[in-house]
Amino acid sequence: MVEKKSIKILRTVLLIILPIATAIIALMIGRIAISPKDVFLILTGQGDMVETVSRMTVISFRLPRIILALFVGAGLSVAGCAFQGLFANPLATPDTLGVASGASFGAAVAILLGFNAIPVQISSFIFGILAVVLTVLCGRGKGKGMTMIILSGIMIGSLFSALISFVKYVADAESQLPAITYWLMGSLASTDYKSLIVGVPPILIGILILFILRWRMNLLPLTEDEIKSSGTNVLALRAATVLAATAITAASVSMCGQVGWIGLLVPHMVRMRLGSNFKTVVPASISIGAVFLIIVDTVARSLTASEIPISILTAIIGAPFFIYLMRRGGSFR
């Protein structure tokens, strides 16, 4: 018992340190390599002693980008966790449920109409919610199996993808079209502190809500009667989970496009190691998700001379993993 407790503490400490350590190491890596000593000096406010190029690179480019990767990675992972519990389905994620496509469409329309950051986020959130509601309405009913909701999600997703194509079609080919296209491919490159101030709070609030509810989320995959007879308000619990997960997805999409697959990959890696209890899966997904996206983004920006869109990298890892999970069969219910 004593030993078990110390393992728990060790795990908690590791999960807190890991994202921070990864972030600091990522600050050093890139086309311009910056020494650990310089990074330390810059972070502790003694940047005057470092070359201006290094200082500018760390503060204006790498730091906001890594902060964004940290929040988006943590957020999308925990959103995936939430959707998987909600639908008692290991394949449910913002991508497979059509939420990401819906949110992208909302954001694309707002960009087309010339709006700036906050309306883009709101529009993205509204269409994200609309997509998940449509998916649920289409996917429930008779053939209730695990695949129904996913098929329905893929259909709703492709519907919104078509609408996004339409937005691109009517967009101004000189300026708007490239902007929308590159943004949708997923990139964290255009981040600055101003966009972080608008985009990070919804993600943070969503993560906090899910973190607070983490133990109660264990009820989500159970039958409706079981949830009710545990004295829990079913509707309130489901609504809180959907809203939090969708807010995270919408804010992420608005800032860096469709960074796919993280909501599938990370929670499953965590579950394979730590079991299904949301009380441990939620915090671990937050931490590992942050680490994962920082690493993938660092690879994306430093592997080749021109940057690789991040969704290409996540899909190359994600698609085979999805097939593996699908063949293994779900273990939620």
């Binding site: 008692a88 039958t223 545990s230 004295g231 079991g275 299904s276 009380k279 219910r333």
Partner: peptide, 19 residues
């Protein structure tokens, strides 16, 4: 037969304290 979530027995029994 209707409930087989993949939790451990410990976690399943703890759910009984939700109220």
């Amino acid at each position: 037969k209707n409930t087989t979530a993949a939790y451990t027995v410990r976690d399943t029994v703890l759910i009984g304290l939700a109220a």
